[in-house]
Computed example of a mutant assay.
Amino acid sequence: MTHNTPLSPRPLRHLSDVHRRVVTTAQLRSHGVSTAELTERCRPDGPWRQLLPNVVLLHPGPPTSEERLHGALLYAARESTPGVPVQPTAQSPHRPVYREAMLTGLAALTLYGFSSTPSLLSLDHVDVLVPRLRRIRSTGYVRVVRTPDLPTPRAVTGLPVAPVPRALADAVADLKDPQEVRRLLTEAVRGGHCEPAAVVRELTSAKLLTRPHVVDAVDSLLAEGRAIAEDRLYRMVRTYGLPDPVWNVDLRLPGGPHLAGLDAYWPDQAVAVELDTRAPRQDEDALWSEYARKREHLERLGITVVYITPRKLREAMEQQAAVVRTALMASGDRDPAAYVVVLPR
């Protein structure tokens, strides 16, 4: 039998091409390959090679980037219950399920299309995220990353990949160069991969905000995220034909105290828009209470306040424009608002 001969007794026709090239020793045994035959085929000049513990590459020579990723997942995935094979899913009939394992870190970001990450083949290691209590350790080119709460993976090129914020946190944990960290975080926001708040939550959870170079990058990230959200707000007003507001203003009572800083305000209709860009590093409850107090105060004065998150602007701009338009149209049915002084911020 040559290394190209289908394995008996059950050929692997249900698998994709790469899954015929990278298999586990358990799969080989189930197809009639004995331990002695496996050892013989994986000798230095043999047709197969041991890629990782219990993972075999069914051809000589180095693995491709795709084979390395599949091999890492095969190594880290939890084995199925004996006698109950894990079947391909209806959505991916030619791809086996990797239980309790997903790609994270730089490899995951490269799969998401980040331009500031290395190529897959040039990576020294591939990070794989697993539950904290799994009894598995890093080996070869695979680095095991543990978490108490495994997130729901996204399918990228058919592979289970950690959500971008989590992958970013796992990548940043290993980076010492401030410029590299800043480039990754900036690309995540500019490229529309995720919102700054989600990134900061993951960095906080990973206890990475004790590192000065990460804190500096996060400050730049939040400023970048706010600038992008403001640009989208301008675009929303233009694209959906809303009346021009006054931008970035402070409201004060005549001769009285400061009331609020607003991103957009329509004085004739007494409608205000504020971007909700709360930083998760701050006390969420205290900050939300501050937002609520400000909104309540303004609405007692007859001013309608619409809060819009950067994510809603990115994903549902037309819907947010409709909310603002409704508030503007409803102004004619309300009692006149109190007189306030509008100043540039």
Rank of each mutant, 00 (worst) to 15 (best):
L242V: 06
T104N: 04
V172C: 04
D127I: 00
E195C: 08
L121Q: 15
R154A: 12
D216I: 06
P9T: 11
R20E: 11
G256M: 09
V161Q: 03
R311E: 15
R99C: 05
A162C: 07
R281K: 06
R137C: 04
A198N: 03
R135G: 05
E299Y: 08
A173L: 04
V33P: 05
S122E: 15
P212E: 13
R190N: 10
G32M: 07
V156C: 04
V189M: 09
G105D: 12
G61W: 07
T204Y: 02
E202H: 08
S331P: 07
K294R: 15
S65L: 02
I136P: 02
G256P: 07
L28W: 05
M236F: 06
L301T: 11
Q87T: 10
R334W: 11
R293L: 14
I308W: 01
R311A: 15
V249D: 03
R238T: 10
R134K: 14
T152K: 06
E187R: 07
H297C: 09
Y75D: 04
R13S: 12
V56K: 01
P53Q: 10
P336K: 05
E66V: 08
D231Q: 14
R146S: 07
Y240W: 14
M102C: 08
V249W: 02
S289D: 15
V249R: 05
V130E: 07
G225Y: 04
R143C: 01
V237Q: 05
L57T: 08
Y141Q: 10
T326C: 02
A292N: 15
E180F: 00
G241C: 03
A206F: 07
G225M: 03
F114V: 08
G32V: 06
V126I: 15
Q91S: 09
T117C: 08
V97G: 03
H31F: 00
A260Y: 04
R41Q: 15
D250V: 01
A223L: 11
S8G: 13
Y75W: 05
E315G: 02
A338T: 10
L121D: 15
R235Q: 13
G46S: 10
P11R: 12
T117V: 14
R211V: 12
D45W: 05
R132G: 13
A77P: 00
G32P: 03
P47V: 02
G46E: 13
G302I: 09
R154N: 12
T35N: 09
R49L: 08
H258W: 14
S92W: 11
A188E: 12
